[in-house]
């Protein structure tokens, strides 16, 4: 898994630049995504996790920083041809399956839009065959191709969204809260489908969500964001067993678990950004506390955390 598919270097996404209401939605984050893995991104609403996903796929033009896909920068001046190349390799699944499908297009046209744009089918027949194949891959059937989105339930629509993303045979899929709008019993269906597709097609996912138990389940590594910054990045099980940043600790302590006994004895910790007591000019950055476990901290905290880690 050592091959880096995507490198994000000091990515910044600011809105209203130059005006008094400047918003630093993403403020200098760096991480890598390896080929074939699922990287989960969690945090509360407004922490910049969706913006990060959208900047990576260039739905927004990054204010600063680089997104390297297989070594090439996604941002910066690009010809249409170059952009098309990236668009084929990177796809996105959106949160709201009701708003992200065009209600005036049939399912076949929605799914085949990417195939048409990239000229992946030589004949009409080939195009339809491809659509049928994709529908089957995501657990729908042929007859669904001529219908319109409103005829489907939320879970089925999300499957159409997944089929659309898969149509151009991407290597990397950004899933922005793909299950938040779905019912519990349907969520598991979609997550299982995504896992199965990953195994079959060797996809790489960036999975953005606020449901921490689902993220833990699907992800290999998890990044925690807080106010536009990545505060902790670690393998999924390590993050849950040994959260180091106080914000991660408070986030984990807040997940309600389906077990009445643990709920009765639960103790929540709340996060106060003042606990760090960073001195002026102290350099706060991502530091690797142990192998693969990064925490956003100052040099002093870093020493302390390393000591803690040994015990």
């Amino acid at each position: 898994m050592a091959e880096k598919l995507i490198e994000i270097r000091n990515l910044k996404q600011h809105f209203n630049v130059g005006r008094p209401n400047l918003v630093k939605a993403v403020d200098g984050i760096s991480f890598d995504i390896y080929r074939g893995e699922t990287l989960g991104l969690v945090g509360e609403s407004g922490c910049g996790k969706s913006t990060t996903g959208r900047s990576i796929i260039r739905l927004y033009d990054a204010t600063d920083g680089e997104v390297l896909f297989e070594g090439e920068n996604v941002h910066g001046t690009k010809s249409t041809k170059e952009l098309k190349k990236f668009n084929r390799k990177m796809q996105m699944i959106f949160q709201d399956p009701y708003a992200s499908l065009n209600p005036r297009m049939t399912v076949a046209d929605i799914i085949a839009e990417g195939i048409d744009i990239h000229g992946l089918a030589n004949s009409k027949q080939e195009r339809m065959e491809r659509v049928y194949e994709l529908l089957e891959t995501v657990g729908l059937n042929k007859e669904h191709a001529s219908r319109y989105p409103h005829e489907f339930s939320g879970g089925q629509r999300q499957r159409i969204g997944i089929a659309r993303a898969l149509a151009v045979e991407p290597e990397f899929i950004i899933a922005d809260e793909p299950i938040s709008a779905l019912d519990v019993s349907i969520q598991a269906q979609v997550v299982n489908l995504m896992k199965q597709l990953q195994r079959d097609k060797g996809l790489t996912y960036l999975f953005i969500a606020h449901d921490l138990s689902m993220v833990k389940y699907i992800s290999d590594r998890i990044g925690v964001m807080y106010y536009g910054k990545l505060v902790e990045l670690a393998p999924a099980d390590v993050l849950y067993k040994n959260p180091l940043h106080p914000y991660t600790q408070s986030l984990l302590s807040a997940i309600p678990l389906p077990d009445p006994e643990t709920e009765r004895t639960r103790r929540r910790t709340s996060y106060d950004p003042d606990v760090h007591e960073y001195a002026d000019g102290e350099e706060v950055q991502m530091r690797e506390v142990s192998k693969g476990h990064f925490v956003y901290c100052s040099e002093k905290e870093f020493q302390k955390l390393q000591k803690q880690y040994k015990n």
Binding site: Q189, V191, S213, K216, Y240, P258
Partner: peptide
């Protein structure tokens, strides 16, 4: 169908 936090992620969710 709910993943539990101590689930190691190996098993498939029973949808």
């Amino acid at each position: 169908s709910m993943p539990s936090v101590d689930n190691d992620g190996g098993a498939e969710l029973t949808a």
